[in-house]
């Protein structure tokens, strides 16, 4: 089997006030996979993803990205490999123009000149925001901001793209268009979401987290058909929807 893009073994973490956020998490994501991470508020999803790029350092266990084990010395390389797109695009877009923002990551990696321009242009093209390049971020619609935020991370050519609630606050058309764009990427994806239909559409595999543990790991359709499991972990399909057998 290939070297997993993400290999988390026995990861444990508690906050300074003693609250245990993660209990011995094991998690493997392989190159090219698209995985959804579901769970109620406070389940530890955000804490987990902040470990994947070394914002939090493991207190117990280990995190490895494409075979490189996370440590204080290689945290910059880990951050290049793991691209996290945060929930509020206003937090992510801090530069004066869209282009400057997408350039931020690659410049930190030392790219300059034509190489930088090519990388940025290609990424803007992929996220279909090339026409917004010279605009200041505060002049964009919410959906556009989200696309630019993803472009800013994608421009670092990460081994895995981690999206925190990518569909929140999007209107149905923007959500649809975003799904289409994301599906066209060949990047490994981890999608943290409450949007179960989106998880089903995007990700063949799903993990369910609750109270700092991974409580389920299976095919997305199988998990969404398991009413008992969903109910137990405060997950719900939108009213009137159910997953047909064979989906």
């Amino acid at each position: 089997m290939s070297v997993p893009t993400i290999a988390v073994e026995g990861l444990g973490f508690s906050y300074p006030d003693g609250t245990v956020a993660l209990h011995s998490i094991d998690l493997h994501i392989h190159p090219g996979e698209r995985v959804a991470l579901l769970g109620p508020n406070g389940a530890g999803k955000t804490t987990l993803i902040l470990h994947l790029n070394g914002i939090h350092m493991p207190q117990h266990g280990s995190v490895a990205v494409s075979g490189l084990e996370l440590s204080r010395d290689n945290v910059m390389e880990i951050r290049r490999r793991v691209g996290i797109v945060f929930q509020d695009p206003d937090d992510q877009l801090f530069m004066p123009t869209v282009r400057a923002d997408v350039e931020f990551g690659p410049r930190n990696l030392g790219l300059e000149g034509d190489e930088l321009d090519e990388r940025v242009d290609a990424t803007l093209e992929t996220m279909e925001v090339a026409d917004l390049a010279e605009r200041p971020p505060n002049h964009l619609s919410f959906g556009q901001k989200r696309r630019v935020a993803i472009a800013g991370v994608l421009a670092m050519e990460p081994a895995i793209l981690v999206l925190d609630e990518p569909t929140s606050n999007l209107d149905p058309a923007s959500r649809r268009e975003l799904a289409t764009t994301l599906r066209a990427l060949d990047t490994t994806l981890l999608v943290v979401t409450h949007d179960l239909p989106f998880a089903l559409e995007m990700c063949p595999r799903t993990l369910v987290m609750d109270e700092g543990r991974i409580v389920a790991n299976a095919e997305t359709a199988e998990i969404l058909r398991n009413d008992e499991l969903l109910k137990q972990h405060r997950l719900e399909l939108p009213y009137g929807l159910s997953i047909a057998v064979g989906d």
């Binding site: 206003d90 931020f104 990696l109």
Partner: peptide, 21 residues
């Protein structure tokens, strides 16, 4: 928000120096 912006910056390789335009 400042904290979150910093996290987002760190996640994109910020190491204390803003790149020049």
């Amino acid at each position: 928000r400042g904290e979150r912006v910093y996290l987002a910056m760190a996640s994109r390789g910020y190491a204390g120096h803003m790149p020049r335009s």
